[in-house]
Design a protein around this nucleic acid. Structure first.
Length: 268
DNA sequence: GGCCAGGTGAAAC
DNA sequence: GTTTCACATGGC
């Protein structure tokens, strides 16, 4: 189906550091989500995907008007204007909470290429879905699929010292200690507190998880790039969260994506 | 070849 | 409460 939208750019989303299961293919991307493998390609004023499932409309967060958000912040400062102009097609995908938790536990003190590679290897523990031009695609494994996977197995997936965090996460979920799907109805505060109890989840990772996995736009992950942006462009080196809450109020999580995407691009 | 990457846990103050 | 340090590993 064709999805028309002027704030929807596949390449920008793919490179905005929120998903690690998009595979560049032909002119577009192979995307695995919703127990389904699709191919998406860019159009002039939107995208085309080879699925008719309305799930994807929600996945691409289509009911949210990103131009309205951009207009709201326009003229606030020069750097933000540049960032929004550069990242006009960035959106925040609605991704599976469990997959997001795993992704961002792996993301700590890591780089995007390695995170992508680790997620690809872990996906082989999931159900085989489809082969496209010789490459096999797998559904992302459920916690149950990972019960028997050992710390050493995770190490072989390239997780480094984070191997034991993922192993612990699976124990926590399968033992009923935490249910990544049941906690979606918690308040912003309770949700974050719950996530912070997980090993390998600190302030920054928790913010990524609530923003990318639970549709909480108050999430504002402060990573190395955002730190540089705040320091060099806003003169903020301490009490960052207070500054963010005041200055970027309205849709802070989406603004954070524009700043991250642009700041990383210009190697600020 | 040292530094960096979408930082966190644990020990030490 | 905050400061300090170790931590796997591929890319540059």
């Amino acid at each position: 189906m064709i999805i028309k939208n002027r704030n929807l750019n596949l390449k920008q989303i793919a490179e905005s550091g929120q998903t690690f299961r998009w595979y560049p293919h032909s002119e577009g991307y192979v995307i695995v989500a919703n127990h389904e493998v699709i191919y998406a390609r860019q159009l002039e004023d939107g995208i085309e995907i080879d699925s008719e499932d309305p799930y994807w409309l929600d996945y691409f967060d289509l009911e949210r008007d990103y131009q309205d958000i951009i207009n709201h912040y326009k003229g606030k400062d020069v750097f933000l204007d540049e960032a929004m102009a550069y990242g006009w097609g960035v959106r925040i995908l609605k991704q599976d909470p469990f997959e997001i938790i795993v992704s961002f536990i792996i993301s700590a003190n890591n780089n995007i290429k390695r995170i992508t590679s680790a997620m690809e290897k872990i996906s082989h523990y999931g159900t085989y879905l489809k082969t496209i031009e010789g490459k096999d695609y797998y559904d992302f494994p459920s916690p149950e699929d990972l019960i028997q996977v050992t710390v050493d197995d995770y190490r072989l997936c390239g997780l480094g010292y984070r191997d034991k965090y993922l192993h612990q996460l699976i124990q926590d979920i399968t033992s009923g200690n935490i249910d990544p799907y049941a906690i979606k109805d918690l308040s912003d505060k309770e949700l974050k507190e719950t996530l912070l109890r997980l090993k390998g989840v600190g302030e920054k990772v928790a913010n990524c998880i609530v923003l990318f996995g639970y549709d909480r736009s108050d999430g504002f992950p402060i990573d190395t790039w955002i730190k540089k942006v705040l320091d060099k462009k806003y003169g903020v080196t301490k009490n960052e969260t207070d500054f963010i809450k005041n200055y970027f109020d309205y849709y802070p999580g989406i603004i954070q994506q524009y700043l991250f995407f642009y700041g990383r691009f210009i190697k600020i």
